[in-house]
Nucleic acid binder design. Structure first.
Length: 382
DNA sequence: TCGTATGATTTGAT
DNA sequence: ATCAAATCATACGA
């Protein structure tokens, strides 16, 4: 990229001297003096100090000054011509909006903590970007964010420094030639407009980076991966031990997500799929149910020994609501026994029956105003 | 290569 | 917002 640090020669004075002899014969020394003035900006101020003093005291100075005024007349108009372009750019506006929408740029000066800002934008991976709550995506986005802000800061600083430098040079020059505040303002504006392509480019490439990241992440999402064995086990354990009401509360979902190393929305998806598929083809899941209920039962008996609760808080004190208040480790044990006897149950009863009638529906979990001991919420929250 | 399993998405209802 | 149901798209094993 193009660095904003350029040699500090912002105000290349017009090549005036070439046309210098307009009317009054300038005298042989005028051209020289002008040359010297031009040279001043190129010299270190220390070096030029004495010379400037000499120039200021020069008997030709008043005449020179009027010549300079004349030159300036022309210069100002040309500066104006340059300045007139540049209405608020539509593309820049678009880029700004996009960066804002992506959470890359902040609404305006919000101090540090880009990551915090990002996570605040989608608290708990909430709906707006359901899928994009992926931690990998977040991390990358915040990297882009940080890079963007640090580059922008660098640019702003360089721009400020350069402007300050130019301004001071102009002020310095104003001692030997007429420099109006307006001219300085014009110059500053010109600098900014020249520099403005830099943040524009920065914004553009940041947008591109975000788009690429998004695309890649969405691709990754398409290329789904099966959950780890651990995750599947955790989910299945919960599902079969809450078969009468397989609707984990928000807390339970979080716990399951944590234990399985997946996201909360993945847990929700999984339960959605599982309920449907279980209901559709319960026979197929019987073996699985047996395995997991047995597993849970074993865990329960093991845990029961030292008189402690099961390891997972959200699953530990489960009892259930719904038609068959059978849930949790102890119930699982009972159910296992039942299952052993009633494998293909003739009618009703057992696991199949629970699901066959359909689950009582959701909402049980969230609140059980009647103090129903079986709600899933009570599993998690009590 | 094909059939099945499975995670994700979409749609419509509550 | 959450759910059921349908559907899509990919992973995976035979």
């Amino acid at each position: 990229m193009d660095s904003p640090q350029r040699p500090p020669r912002p105000a290349p004075p017009p090549p005036a001297p070439r046309r210098s002899p307009p009317g009054p014969p300038p005298g042989s020394s005028t051209g020289d003096v002008l040359q010297q003035i031009m040279a001043i900006t190129d010299q270190s101020l220390d070096e030029a100090q004495a010379r400037k003093h000499a120039l200021n005291c020069h008997r030709m100075k008043p005449a020179l000054f009027s010549v300079l005024c004349e030159i300036k007349e022309k210069t100002v108009s040309s500066i104006r011509g340059i300045q007139e372009e540049g209405p608020p750019d539509a593309q820049l506006l678009r880029l700004d909006n996009m960066l804002l929408a992506e959470g890359v740029s902040r609404p305006k000066k919000q101090g540090r903590g880009a990551v915090a800002a990002a996570s605040a934008a989608a608290p708990g991976g909430r709906p707006s970007d359901r899928g994009l709550e992926h931690s990998g995506y977040r991390a990358k986005l915040s990297q882009i964010q940080q890079l963007y802000h640090s580059e922008l800061e660098k640019y702003e600083q360089a721009c400020r420094e350069f402007t300050r430098h130019v301004t001071s040079l102009l002020q310095e020059q104003s001692r030997v030639r007429p420099v109006s505040p307006m001219e300085i303002a014009h110059m500053v504006g010109a600098i900014h407009s020249k520099f403005s392509s830099i943040p524009m480019q920065l914004k553009q490439s940041t947008c591109e980076a975000v788009m690429t990241l998004r695309a890649r992440f969405l691709d990754a999402r398409r290329k789904r991966q099966n959950f780890s064995k651990q995750a599947t086990e955790v989910l299945n354990e919960y599902f079969y031990s809450h078969l009468s009401n397989p609707y984990p509360s928000e807390e339970a979902k979080e716990e399951l997500a944590r234990r399985g190393g997946i996201s909360v929305s993945q847990v929700s998806n999984w339960f959605g799929n599982k309920r449907i598929r279980y209901k559709k083809n319960m026979r197929k899941f019987q073996e699985e149910a047996t395995i997991y209920t047995a597993k849970t039962a074993v865990d329960a008996t093991e845990v029961r020994g030292p008189g402690r609760q099961a390891s997972c808080p959200s699953m530990s004190h489960s009892s259930s609501s719904g038609p068959f208040p059978l849930t949790g480790p102890r119930d699982a044990l009972v159910r296992l026994q039942t299952l052993a006897c009633l494998q293909p149950t003739p009618r009703g009863g057992g696991l199949l029956a629970q699901a066959r009638g359909g689950w009582p529906g959701k909402q049980m979990p969230t609140a059980s105003p009647t103090g129903n001991p079986g709600s899933v919420t009570s599993d998690a929250s009590n």
